[in-house]
């Protein structure tokens, strides 16, 4: 059963990474300045000594460190991420409530950046040393060098403030009371600016990578073989060069998708998008460390899931891997 052992191997590795992140997280809480109980309660709530005493007892903060670690891990593994005293809600509920919005935003941004990036990179590789190719590369360099949050602000300035084409803030028009399709359309309209501005940077990354990868593949011997067959240039580009050039892009996309969740903090902050990125910003502003670390753990979880997914896709795309793993 090569596939089963493969999946087991991947899952095993992911579990180890998750446990490592948990330990890391635990020590971060303890590295935070001041009393861990105060950290958990958030600074402002830490004035009441009796309250802190309760917290200490409840979370066993008077116990030795290994016991605390054990309890903490036990808690997380039973999906207990603790309680946000600032927001007066369990951390898990807060995250789950905000998760769909973030998934929608990052999903859309991922799709936009990957498809447009590969397209632009392919065009740039085919038009190397020609003005149109240089233009694509120039633009991608520009997007690559622009701070994410600043692009977002400039987009708001141009498309919302000056042109008034698209909504600048939020997830849906407040108080409009749309339902059904109208609601979906409204959300989609709100999604455009955040998704595009979040996607721009990553699109630049994929464009550059695709171009480099295609140019290096086009130097390989089998491309000469394809030309010697008398194949048309378009077929060679698509079937022989692009297919091989996409392999490293898959790996990169897996890594970048994880970074996108982090980047969403900035985008969601600018657009007041109600996702976990925005939640992270709020936790940051309120020094709500318990919530902050909960979100951090969740981000890492998402990244691990995504990496496993890319791994599977890579194995489907490259026959050589399947064989050597079997």
């Amino acid at each position: 059963m090569p596939y089963l052992s493969l999946i087991l191997g991947r899952v095993g590795k992911a579990v180890i990474v998750l446990l490592a992140i948990l330990v890391f997280n635990f020590f971060l809480i303890h590295a935070a300045p001041g009393d861990p109980a105060a950290v958990m309660a958030g600074e402002a709530g830490a004035t009441d000594e009796q309250f802190l005493e309760d917290l200490r007892e409840r979370f066993g903060l008077d116990q030795p460190l290994p016991v605390q670690l054990w309890r903490y891990m036990g808690g997380v593994l039973t999906l207990d991420f603790g309680y946000s005293y600032r927001q007066q809600m369990p951390v898990l509920d807060l995250i789950l409530e905000r998760l769909p919005a973030t998934l929608m935003l990052t999903g859309a941004a991922f799709f936009i950046s990957l498809s447009l990036g590969i397209l632009a990179g392919t065009l740039a590789a085919m038009r190397v040393k020609r003005p149109s190719g240089s233009l694509i590369m120039g633009l991608s360099l520009l997007f690559y060098a622009t701070p994410l949050y600043w692009v977002a602000m400039m987009a708001v300035l141009v498309f919302s403030v000056v042109l008034d084409w698209l909504p600048a803030y939020g997830y849906a028009t407040v108080g409009a009371g749309y339902t059904g399709l109208a609601h979906a359309g409204d959300v989609a309209l709100h999604l455009i600016l955040p998704a595009v501005t979040l996607g721009l940077f990553f699109m630049a990354v994929y464009t550059r990578m695709t171009r480099t990868s295609m140019l290096s593949v086009s130097q390989q011997d089998f491309v000469k073989t394809a030309r010697a067959k008398g194949l048309a240039p378009g077929v060679i580009q698509r079937r022989h060069i692009l297919r091989n050039a996409l392999l490293p892009i898959i790996t990169l996309a897996g890594l970048q998708a994880g970074q996108m969740v982090g980047g969403a903090v900035l985008t969601e902050t600018v657009f007041a998008w109600p996702g976990i990125g925005r939640l992270m910003y709020e936790a940051l502003m309120q020094r709500d460390y318990n919530l902050l670390l909960g979100i951090f753990f969740f981000c890492a979880l998402l990244v691990i899931l995504f990496n496993m997914l890319t791994d599977v896709i890579y194995r489907l795309a490259d026959p050589r891997i399947k064989q050597s793993a079997a």
């Binding site: 992140i21 994880g258 970074q259 980047g263 979100i295 890492a300």
Partner: peptide
Amino acid sequence: QTIPNFAL
């Protein structure tokens, strides 16, 4: 590398 960069 697995931990999201910016979040970390």
